[in-house]
């Protein structure tokens, strides 16, 4: 495929987290991050706050405040050369300020992950037939699939969210469904967002899969037909297993993209990470700390996703297929 960077789209470049993902420090941070999340969720959702009360952080604020104060005093006494110590003091101050909000943000992270995973997984189910239609369909199906992708790729995701949420009866319909908004099941806005992400991400995913299918040599389908497989079976058993492997890098980028853009669900009142952060910030006016914190949490999610996808790519790798030279 020649030079991947120049031939693939700009969005393909998104996840290439520039080699940061293989550093031990990154792995350690991601490990701590997920341990915290899982323990937090288990405590809050499953154990009903058995370990610690729901809105109480695991970490005491005191020591961090004390450290910040000591270091701050030290920095002041050092005068102009004390600025690195001053920075460290600032870092501890930041930690101390962040700690009380962590439990609420963890709940937001849960919604963010759920939105992303559902959006991309459901989108994938649409994207596969869509891309197959683009590559193998008749002229009418091809045009239809092309129209779909162009429309969804040509308009902002936020506008799509607004159309679905404000301008269609979708909200009312979902609200009427049994169980929506009770117990574990999120309220209607969440589902509208999932539908929007599904439709939007299907369009992008189908582009990645389409170009991957095109890179499967034609002889593969010919050979499949020659042993008596029907066209559909040949696509299913021979072309797709190869094409989907080629599509993994693009697909990882789509995952990263969706993690970040899931923040747009806050505009339609979904209580995901950004919305939670914003709500706390407008109460406490600690905009900088909170949004830096939110940014770090998103970054941790994005890096985790890249790591997972690298692992998946590794696991399904086949000699001579995909990233290795072709």
């Amino acid at each position: 495929m020649g030079t991947p960077e120049s031939t693939t789209s700009g969005r393909t470049l998104r996840a290439r987290a520039a080699g940061l993902t293989d550093q031990p420090l990154t792995l350690l941070t991601v490990g701590v991050f997920w341990t915290w999340l899982v323990v937090r969720w288990t405590n809050d959702f499953l154990l009903d706050g058995a370990l610690i009360e729901r809105n109480t952080s695991f970490f005491p604020v005191g020591p961090f405040e004390a450290a910040a104060a000591t270091l701050g005093a030290l920095a002041a006494s050092l005068g102009p050369v004390g600025f690195p110590v001053g920075w460290l003091a600032g870092f501890f101050e930041f930690l101390a300020a962040s700690i009380p909000y962590l439990p609420q943000l963890a709940t937001g992270v849960w919604a963010t992950i759920l939105l992303t995973v559902l959006g991309i997984a459901l989108g994938f189910l649409i994207a596969v037939p869509l891309s197959v239609a683009r590559v193998y369909g008749g002229s009418a199906t091809r045009l239809l699939a092309l129209g779909y992708t162009e429309l969804f790729r040509g308009t902002p995701l936020l506008a799509q969210l607004f159309v679905l949420y404000f301008a269609t009866p979708l909200t009312t319909i979902i609200r009427e469904l049994p169980a929506v908004g009770t117990g574990f099941i999120p309220a209607q806005a969440f589902w509208v967002a999932v539908i929007a992400f599904m439709l939007n991400s299907a369009a992008y995913q189908s582009e990645y899969i389409r170009s991957a299918l095109n890179s499967v040599p034609e002889g593969q389908l010919t050979a499949a037909r020659a042993i008596g497989l029907s066209k559909v079976d040949g696509i299913r058993h021979v072309v797709l297993p190869q094409g989907l492997r080629y599509a993994i890098p693009g697909w990882s980028n789509e995952l990263v993209y969706l993690i970040k853009y899931s923040s747009l669900a806050s505009f339609i009142t979904v209580r995901e990470l950004f919305e939670r952060t914003d709500a706390i910030a407008s109460e406490t006016y600690r905009y900088t700390e909170l949004f830096v914190l939110a940014g770090l949490l998103y970054l941790a999610l994005v890096i985790s996703a890249s790591l997972v996808m690298e692992y998946v790519e590794d696991r399904v790798a086949i000699p001579g297929l995909g990233t290795t030279s072709r």
Binding site: P217, Q220, H237
Partner: peptide, 26 residues
């Protein structure tokens, strides 16, 4: 049966997988 000039082996399957795909799916 057909044998091709440029082989057209199914690139995602082992030698055994190539031979058995037709048996299993056809």
């Amino acid at each position: 049966g057909m044998v091709f000039q440029d082989f057209n082996l199914f690139a995602h399957l082992t030698a055994l997988g190539n031979v058995t795909l037709g048996l299993r799916k056809v």
